[in-house]
């Protein structure tokens, strides 16, 4: 017993003061992609973009839903692409993930009626539908003492029947399609669906594969897209707090 108490004091208090304080990421962290406005005709190296994340057009645009945030992606257009330290990436509409400059239309709060139901207590069921387990590991990490998800009234529950919505990872393999649809049907309405990670949004590195779908879109309706490979726990948390309108304005 003494051991437990002594240890407790040694371990101290470890929870981040997020969202009160802006989180600090290491220098090499690859957050939101920035397209420098000056470069209107940068030379695009297609080989560095095997997943087709660059949207062709007069000015290059990037689909964050297809981007794996890998280091060499910058070389697609070395003059115009850089990664920022900004972890905020979640959006409400699929097309908002296509960025043309340094602006991104981050996720909006749910409508007032839904927010009144979920705002103080949101229960989610997680479904892994063919992910590599990377996104799932980060979702799980949100529950540890550092991020401490439950202080925001958000919890992961064991059954879809107890849930207000689904958080889905993975490109949705053919073998998981049925289980995913059944789980969705088991969630009582009103319900929300959150797609986490490049795979769940676009198929990620598996896009176009014979054994997978290209993400959740088209199978069940999605309310929140959180890109990344995998998204940092704070990126996921930011998305959740945004739809619940729990972040102060312009933070």
């Amino acid at each position: 017993m003494w051991g437990v108490i002594v240890n407790r004091f040694k371990q101290g208090f470890r929870t981040l003061s997020y969202p009160k304080e802006v989180p600090v990421f290491p220098k090499r962290f690859r957050g939101r992609l920035m397209i420098s406005a000056a470069e209107t005709q940068c030379s695009i190296d297609k080989t560095k973009d095997p997943l087709g994340a660059v949207v062709p057009g007069k000015k290059p645009a990037v689909d964050l839903g297809k981007c794996l945030f890998n280091e060499e992606f910058k070389a697609v257009c070395p003059e115009g692409l850089t990664y920022s330290q900004d972890h905020r990436l979640a959006v409400s509409k699929r097309e908002d993930l296509i960025i043309r400059d340094n602006e991104v239309k981050l996720a909006a709060a749910l409508n007032e009626k839904t927010r009144r139901i979920f705002g103080r207590s949101l229960k989610l069921r997680e479904v892994c539908a063919g992910s590599c387990n990377g996104c799932d590991a980060e979702i799980q990490a949100m529950g540890n003492v550092v991020f401490d998800l439950s202080r925001f009234g958000i919890q992961f529950v064991a059954s879809p029947r107890h849930a207000d919505g689904l958080m889905i990872t993975g490109p949705v393999t053919k073998n998981m399609e049925l289980a995913l649809k059944k789980t969705y049907e088991a969630v009582p309405s009103p319900k929300i669906v959150i797609a986490v990670g490049a795979c769940a949004i676009s198929g990620g590195p598996f896009a176009g594969g014979k054994e997978v779908h290209n993400g959740v879109d088209g199978l069940i309706p999605v309310d929140l897209y959180i890109p990344g490979c995998p998204p940092h726990p704070l990126t996921i948390l930011d998305g959740l707090l945004r739809i619940l309108d729990k972040l102060e304005k312009e933070r």
């Binding site: 080989t47 560095k48 095997p50 997943l51 794996l68 890998n70 060499e72 892994c128 063919g130 992910s131 590599c132 387990n133 990377g134 996104c135 799932d136 590991a137 993975g170 490109p171 393999t173 053919k174 073998n175 998981m176 289980a179 795979c199 990620g204 590195p205 598996f206 594969g209 014979k210 054994e211 997978v212 490979c229 995998p230």
Partner: peptide, 30 residues
């Protein structure tokens, strides 16, 4: 098991080297 089958072995034969390494990183996320 089998629910997580994404067909990686077969995809490795078809994709470019740039994409293959991204696939290899996604075999198991941990």
């Amino acid at each position: 098991l089998g629910y997580q089958h994404r067909g990686i072995e077969k995809m490795m034969e078809d994709v470019s080297a740039e994409r293959a390494v991204l696939l290899a990183e996604s075999i198991a996320g941990d």
